[in-house]
Amino acid sequence: MTTRRNFIKKTGLGLASAYLGSSLLHACTSSKQKGEGPFANIGLQIYSLRDLLSQDAKLTLETVSKIGYSHIETFGLDTTTNSFWGLSVPELKKIMAGIDLKTYSGHYDLSRYLSRHHTDKEPIEKYIETAHELGQKYVIAPVTPMDDLNNLKVEDYQYAAEQLNKAGEIAKQAGIKIGYHNHFWEFRTFANGTKGLDILIAFTDPELVAFELDIYWIEKSGLSPQSYFQKYPGRFPMWHIKDMDKSYSQPIVGKEYDSLPFDSIQNKIRFTEVGSGQIDYINISQSAKQAGLEYAFVEQDDIYMPNKFESVKKSYDYVQKFLTK
């Protein structure tokens, strides 16, 4: 039975899609293959539109394709039903095939798998099986164990690196590579001068483990992405591209912040559409080859525009206009 809440949700999504269809999508090209390279064929971390996916996953994916995105990065596998956003894996494959939308990478919850304090590990084999069925090349751990971020130790990162290597050995048999996606706490400095992300990179096998650099979070940590591309060339075949509100550009890593509860830091964080904020993507994009970039994904953790499709189209248009040259 259709409830009033579901009706409002579906109606709101329909209006958003119709608005895009009549105005914002008018200038989109009919072919996704507009050129070569990861920026010309940009992807979308579909988490950006998670609210819309929960309302109508098929319509959301269709609209993403119409905007021009070539591929999506998945998230949120329900291992009990083997489904994403209410769609079984075969249903999702069928929908994507019909709209020429690919997927090369997925975020799969590995937080307990990477934790040295948990024995109830996530089903890495199931993730790899699902990724293989979807045709994905990467299974990405999207976050570290988050039980107590302020007490992550060198040993925690070393253990996580060992686990990533183990998962990489399993995934290799299916032609898949394991990856890791950073936030800001991996750039906190330990007493010996090392950082969490450096430990993960140093202790993982490049043949088994890749890294997906979230450009926003490294910039929000007060560091430059280029410094990591220079230090670890070829280790970053994936990027998350999202922008930083110019009024919220202060770094959140350092003595002033490293011991604060996460909730008290959140008010220092605000995102915006790519090209609208603080991050110089034109300059950063020049280091794509050095980084080893294969796939880039627009992502916006929180969208503040009323029409979320309009937001991801604005980011898409900027990438096409300024980063494909």
Rank of each mutant, 00 (worst) to 15 (best):
C28K: 15
W185C: 08
K231H: 02
G234F: 10
E273D: 13
S105V: 04
Y108R: 11
G37H: 11
A167N: 03
M146T: 14
G43T: 11
G193R: 10
F203R: 06
K321Y: 14
G135D: 02
D280Y: 10
L61I: 08
K121V: 02
S224R: 03
L59Q: 13
L213V: 08
S105T: 09
I140D: 01
I265A: 05
I199K: 00
L44F: 14
Q136V: 01
V253K: 04
L208Q: 10
K220Q: 15
D109K: 00
L114V: 00
K268I: 05
G76C: 13
K172H: 04
I128Y: 08
L152R: 11
E273S: 03
G35P: 14
F39G: 06
I128V: 15
K289Q: 13
Q136G: 04
A18V: 07
L77I: 01
I199A: 03
L77M: 01
Q136S: 03
E256K: 09
G12D: 07
A210D: 05
L53W: 01
F297N: 04
A16S: 07
Y157P: 05
K321D: 15
K246G: 12
I284Q: 06
L15C: 12
S23L: 15
Q163T: 05
L134S: 01
P225R: 05
K93E: 15
V312A: 00
L25S: 11
G254E: 06
E207C: 10
M244A: 10
F271T: 12
T103K: 09
E256Y: 06
G168R: 01
I252P: 00
S259P: 09
H71D: 09
L260M: 14
S111T: 11
I218G: 03
T119H: 09
S249Y: 05
D51P: 10
T81V: 02
G106Q: 12
A167F: 05
L61H: 02
F39P: 00
H118M: 05
Y232I: 07
Q300Y: 04
G37K: 00
F187H: 08
D78A: 10
P206V: 06
K153N: 11
Y19G: 14
H183A: 06
G12K: 10
I282G: 12
L208W: 03
T103I: 08
F7R: 13
A202P: 10
T60F: 07
D100N: 13
T60V: 08
I8M: 02
A40D: 15
F184T: 12
K255T: 06
G234Y: 13
K137I: 00
E122C: 02
G35W: 15
K166W: 04
